[in-house]
Nucleic acid binder design. Structure first.
Lengths: 191, 191
DNA sequence: TGCCCTCACCTAAAAGTTTTAGGCAAAAGC
DNA sequence: GCTTTTGCCTAAAACTTTTAGGTGAGGGCA
């Protein structure tokens, strides 16, 4: 009597990501997802182990999407051009998909993290730095600095932390990227 | 028959902060708090409007504590000395009080945010920059950059994002601060 | 075409969280 | 010792998570 909706783990993950963008990642709930599919809550537990599992899958999806975008953006670019492109990938993704971006920050257990697209991100940032003249261990330091600035800026901006003050964040963003580029070109030796 | 425990909004907020450090900020629940005071859940609702209100209060507490520490650290310091001191305030606080630090990132509605210690943080970062030679609007750009790096680095490090790779984060941290100091001393003009 | 088997989805139910409404007795004020 | 305040309680409704076990729809096979 009840026609099947066609639930799969993938569709649930996708719908979960959409839900996250609409209501916020931490408002993503198995119940709400069931409601959207017009299906009883218990039915989802055949496709997803539990709430934490669902969130993990959304996080992995977001990390993959972000890495794909980053790879596209970096293709054929180098130096500051690549730096700006990569930085904008993160910022634009966070603006278009705030829930997914929050999901990408979801704390994964070490094995899951190691198998995630997170490692691609680190590799790409390192690739970007080939346009600058940095040897190890400075390259690792720089990778971490870039990750910090991108994530820190985007998450503060998303949280409204830069509101209520001039100049606008657009200008700051481009000046920060200028500054990072300059810094990478003249990376200071250990003090 | 039941001796009163002596609940107040302040004690609940304090206990909530402690709970956050123990189990994580998003695991802070009115029920768990009631359990800790050995009191019925409904009793808390005389002191706290709802769950969101409780979390807001914990966030405000954390922001105050952080600002107090920052003010202490900055007293009598200037230049790079001040930069390092302020940066370490954030990092150390996050390590000592991970739940409180997470709480400090809790999204506040604009009015609450405007009345919070968040504004003190911005003022102090600006004060720090007096040791460098920056005019507006570059000073604002620099304030935002510093906030981004501090927050970004600390939150990635706390999330385990820098694990699994040499060199250790201690070295990176000090090199990043070296780099920021150098950058602030030679802030590049608009490109 | 008809049978069977898988599995998508269901009902039932237990346990936990949030929040409101109304009551009693312990503290506090006089 | 009295009243007033209010801290904490019981009761109850609404929602989320998760497990256990059942039924029928759909696909595979004769």
């Amino acid at each position: 009597m009840a026609p099947r909706v066609g639930l799969t783990t993938e569709r649930l993950t996708q719908a979960g990501a959409t839900l996250a963008d609409e209501v916020g990642f931490d408002q993503v709930t198995v119940s709400e997802l069931a409601r959207r599919f017009d299906v009883k809550v218990a039915s989802l537990y055949s496709h997803v182990r539990n709430s934490h599992d669902l969130k993990t899958r959304i996080a992995l999806l977001a990390l993959e999407e972000l890495a794909d975008r980053a790879a596209d953006a970096l293709a054929g670019r180098a130096g500051k051009d690549a730096l700006v492109a990569l930085a904008n990938v993160y910022r634009d993704y966070a603006r278009e998909h705030p829930g997914r971006y929050a999901a990408a920050q979801f704390r994964l257990d070490p094995e899951t993290a190691a198998a995630s697209a997170g490692v691609r991100h680190a590799r790409m940032t390192r690739a970007l730095l080939r346009g600058y003249d940095l040897d190890e261990p400075d390259q690792t330091h720089a990778v971490r600095l870039l990750g910090s600035v991108f994530h820190g800026y985007v998450s503060i901006e998303m949280g409204g932390g830069f509101s209520h003050s001039a100049p606008d964040t657009e200008e700051t963003w481009s000046r920060v990227l200028d500054a990072l580029d300059a810094l990478l070109r003249t990376w200071p030796p250990a003090s």
